[in-house]
Design a protein around this nucleic acid. Sequence first.
DNA 1: TTTTAATAAAGAAATATTTCTTTATTAAGA
DNA 2: TCTTAATAAAGAAATATTTCTTTATTAAAA
Lengths: 224, 224
Amino acid sequence: MKNTKDNKASGIPVPTIRRLPLYHSFLLTIKNKERKYISAPDIANELQIDPTQIIKDFSYLNVKGKTKVGYVTSVLIKILEEFLGYHISRKAFIVGIGNLGSALIKYHRFHNEGMEITAGFDINPEIINTKTNNLKLFHIDQFQEKINETPVDIGIIVVPADQAQKIADLMIKSGVKAIWNFSGTPLSAPDNIIIENTSIDSGLAMIKWKLHENKPLIYKNRML
Amino acid sequence: MKNTKDNKASGIPVPTIRRLPLYHSFLLTIKNKERKYISAPDIANELQIDPTQIIKDFSYLNVKGKTKVGYVTSVLIKILEEFLGYHISRKAFIVGIGNLGSALIKYHRFHNEGMEITAGFDINPEIINTKTNNLKLFHIDQFQEKINETPVDIGIIVVPADQAQKIADLMIKSGVKAIWNFSGTPLSAPDNIIIENTSIDSGLAMIKWKLHENKPLIYKNRML
DNA sequence: TTTTAATAAAGAAATATTTCTTTATTAAGA
DNA sequence: TCTTAATAAAGAAATATTTCTTTATTAAAA
């Protein structure tokens, strides 16, 4: 009477999760074209991913397609948005208002994806108490005070590498649950703190390696 | 008499390549502290990666450590730089000089990592023929002309999603070998064109998923 | 109505990647 | 010199992920 599925390591693969926003983004363009259905082979063709992988990815979300037709675009979009939590808004503070920080502040997709940046911090006196894209900027010394006023779950670090750990410590002390680290240097944090590292350098490493080695990669798919 | 190693699928794992810049960055800080040796457990401790994975990663590069001591920091750095091609400079053109584009232009690590952005392109008349960080900016219509003057291997796309494919087509036609796509939308390209997609959205997807699910991830390690 | 072809589903197989285990090495201390 | 403990190396095992194969379904065409 045992349920074999419960025995499985059970969990959606991380690479699948990383592919989901790509599917979502693509499906929006399909929806705009007023296409009611979209098939895995069609998605595969555009995204250069194996079609059975797409079917498998969707199956993790318990979405069922219809034989010979494909998936209902609007249902697929809705389920992706629910899974990715786009309907649940999380607040975030961003530290480091340089070019990349400003780019993130202006990145319009975050709003639709359920993250709202509610304050920015820096040490540059020229920008403190000004606004970028309607976002108030404060001195980093006010971080604790501001988070007490309006708690946030996410701290975004966009400072130079040599200052990243210090900011991370401040964020952890202030009670953020997740840190999104763009500094390019690793951070130490307790196990209960979620850390997501986004580093541009690994992208360049891949490009240069592919340019140098003219061998095919182990994995055939392009994304991720 | 057969060499079993040659039979193997043979290839360095992609996740390993993506970890290498992280090791490199960390090792530079070790070098600055004038530590001649660094052990895998020490690196593991800082980077929150399994120590045997680090040893395995280095073994792909044929670096040998010394029992009870570790690796020679300077040798490790040198081998990483050679493998990653930091000593071979590749030229790149960047298209889309918004905030993110400007941030990339100013990203100082690219120089050390062997990529030099030699021209920028946009359609905004206000910035055309000006300079950002000493980089000349041209109208996108001059792309072909400029690449004929000074060929580049890499095209960096930082334009909005709905214009990305058009720019990719132009780049391919102009002879770039690799496209670094920051547009967040997938690109179609012939198989011989290297495509590297860097999308911020998958990072947010991971964070929101981890915030929502309070289960541990399948993989224990933090980076990547 | 029947046949055909396109598709998804399910699960098996193949492959890639990580993690564990054992062994060998060696620096440091007894 | 001998012993101990820390470490890397090598390869086995475990796990994760992708890809393949088979089967079932169904829309469209005959």
